[in-house]
Every structure is written in C-alpha cells, then in structure tokens.
Design a binder for these strands. Sequence first.
DNA 1: ATCAACATACATACTTGTCGGTATGTTGAT
DNA 2: ATCAACATACCGACAAGTATGTATGTTGAT
Lengths: 226, 226
Amino acid sequence: MLIAHAKTPKLRDPERTRKRLLQAAFREVHRSGFQGAGIDTILAATNVTKGALYYHFGSKEVLGYAIVDEVIAKIVHDGWLSPLLASGQPIDILIGIVRRISVRPEDIRTGCPLLNLATEMSPVDEQFRKRLEKLFLAWQEGVAALLRRGQSEGTVRRDLNPEESASFLVAMVEGYASLAKNAQDAKVWEVGIRNIVGWLRSLRAPRQSPKGRRPAAKRRVVQLGR
Amino acid sequence: MLIAHAKTPKLRDPERTRKRLLQAAFREVHRSGFQGAGIDTILAATNVTKGALYYHFGSKEVLGYAIVDEVIAKIVHDGWLSPLLASGQPIDILIGIVRRISVRPEDIRTGCPLLNLATEMSPVDEQFRKRLEKLFLAWQEGVAALLRRGQSEGTVRRDLNPEESASFLVAMVEGYASLAKNAQDAKVWEVGIRNIVGWLRSLRAPRQSPKGRRPAAKRRVVQLGR
DNA sequence: ATCAACATACATACTTGTCGGTATGTTGAT
DNA sequence: ATCAACATACCGACAAGTATGTATGTTGAT
C-alpha cells in the first residue's frame, strides 16, 4: 500500500480532467489560434466527451479565459517572474533568462503564446485583452523592479527609466520571437538573443572609479527621448 | 465631352470591382483575422455578390494571398521601401520613417497588418508564410541597404552588421506595435518610438576628429555578440 | 454596319459541412 | 439516495463554396 492509491488514475477525478482539458485546449489554441481551435480536436486529444468539457467550462470563451488565467499566466510566472526574484546581479539574471528561452524548432514555429493570443484576440474581445494586458504588465513590472534594484545597488545605470527599459526588453523579445516564428528559423531567434544580450550589457553601470562617486555627467546612450 | 466618359462608373468594370473586393477584404481580415473574417461581411461592405467574388478569387485562401501580395505589399512599399530610397542621411531617413508611422487610435488598436497575418497564419498555412516572409525580408533588406550606404558615406558606424541592425529595428517596431495594440494605448507606441529613435541615433558614426581618420578602437556599444 | 457567336462579368439560390452548444441519460462517489 | 461528474445523441446556425441563370461586352464574318 505504499504506492497504490496515488497511482490508480481514479475513474472520477474532476480536477485532473479539468487540468487535462486546459492543457489540451492550450496546445490546440497555441497551434491554431483561438478562432481556429476546434472543441472536437481538444476532446479527441484528451478522450474526454463534450458533456464533460461543458460541465467544467461554460463556453469556448470561458475556456479561453481560463487558458490565459491559468496556463499562460503560469508560463509567464515560471519563465520570468519567478527567475526575476533570484539573487545576483540584475543584468546577469536578465541575460540568463533570455538565454534560457527555448530554441526548439517546435517552440520557434508556434511562437509566444501570450503574444499570439494577444495579436489575435485583443482587438476582437475585450475580456481577452484585459487578461492578457494584466500579464504583459506583470512581466514588465517585474523586470522594472529588478532594474530598480540594480540601480539602487549601483550595478545598473541610473540614467535610464526602469519602466521604459523593461517595456523595451519585452518589445524586443516579442518582436524577435515574431520574426523567428515567421521565418521558422531558430537562427533568427539566436541572432535576436545575441543582440538583446548585447543591449542588456549596455545597461550596466560604468565601472566606478575608485574615488569620486559620480563617474560623469549623463552619457545618454541608453536613455533617449528628445 | 470634357469629363463625361471617364466619369461614369460603368456597369461593368472588373478591375474596379476586384480592387474594391480586395480593399474590403483587407479591412475585414485586418479587423477579425483571416480565420475570423467572413465572406458575407466583405460582400455586404462592398455590395458585390458571391458570384462576383468567386469569379475574381477562386477561394478564401486565394483572396487572402492576394491581400498579402497586393495590399500589404503596397503598404510595406509605401511606408518603408520607397521612403528608404530618399536622399539624405540614412539615420535621419530612418528616424523620419519611424516618426511618420500612424498614431491614430484605430491604427494602434488594429496593429500592423503584416505582423497580424504572420502571427495568425504562418504556422498554419505555408503559402501565407512564404509570402509574408518575402515582405519581411524585403523590408529588412531595404533597411540594411540604407545602413550600408551610410557606412560607406561615413555617417553610420562601421562596427555594426547592417543585416542584424536592420532586423533589430524591425523587431523593435513590431514588438512595440504589439504592446501598443494590446494596451490599446497610443502612449505606449509613442514611448516606443522615442526609444527606437534613441537607438537609431546611437548608430551614427562618432564625430570624426579633424585629423586622424580612425577615431578610436571599437567601442562595441551597438555591436554586441559574445 | 450588323448581327450571330462567344466569352466575360456578374446575380441568385442552394448545398454541404462544420462547429459550438444543449438536452437528456447514466454512472460513480459519499 | 442524492448529487456531482460525466457520456451520448442531437440541434440550429452559419459560412464556404457551387450550380446555374443572366446580362453585358467583344469579335469576326458577311
């Protein structure tokens, strides 16, 4: 009786079926887009019947919202928000995160689920938009907070706006992801990573001269505006 | 008989109806995505009947391909390729182009048609992907060519790779467009433009000292790679 | 010039299939 | 026994596509 009861996949396990449905739905939506996704495809992939699906999710839209709130939110959290809290130099952390992004052809091909859904559904369904916007903002704010920490610790240039730099990073990541996805070429993405990493390095505070706190005036290489 | 015969909209004008269909189809696809676009919506918007549409376009896909090849290609051409050929300093030209991109809420909301279609259709329809890829490459190559001109004229840093910088620019433009679209906020886009312009300025070759051709070693602020 | 013959450019009505959704029955758990 | 958690069968809507008819142009022979 050591393993027994946890192993048997129980004939009735609502939470499990719900998760399985969510996961399969996410994959299908990720592949075909929300509008192109078929309920029947999800059912076939999971061996669940329509009655079961509509017991757990009231409609296709509700299912879609759950995908955003649970599956995609978790991806953002595990891929960014959580790693952002690691200890170490902020810039190194960011570089590590960017480098760790998958380069698997399959992932390149399908692209970023957050961006995909946003591109497709934001102009068409306000409910989707709000939920996706929440994730974008959390992502951006997480990066900004890390940059602020770096500034206060002296490892990140003070002449940059953390929020703007954060959204700049997000824009670059998503932009390159889009190019790579369309090109279906991991090389495009790898070049993108190199360039993003290079940009991240330029955010480092210049070596502090042994004496004299303030190294120089504003260099405004990174911070721009007119 | 000065104006007469050119003015009457002729009962039969196949080229005109074709163009009108294309234009309406583009709008509808731009709004709802290709999969979400309805043939009937296009017909309603243009007062053309189904028979007429299917006379000009063999299927919905063919119509979609024509949108890419004609409408979107023209947008890329008029908005980038053509302006890129203007005379003047390359960096100034690029800044001018970026600044001239529409900030109308409607345009922000719907986003870049090229990116929209690519995000939705590239993983799903190879025909679409190839055509969109062609446009992305033309765009990128146009920018790269301009940067090369700048390098040979001495106004653009020589320590950068024109192709990589060009795709960097494209990625930033599309990335910010995506963020702004999802936020439905022109401010996001304006901040993006400021940052992009700032980056473009950093591509300028450093002021040449009156004597001594080579100003210094490599600064590697822009060109990155490890 | 005229008119038959043909091709082009549509219009209308219908078919077909798909897909989201539902009504209702059944079974397993407590 | 009762209710949650499914299973099955079915429906209605809609949308792409087609079959077929018709009006408008064009062409070529006489």
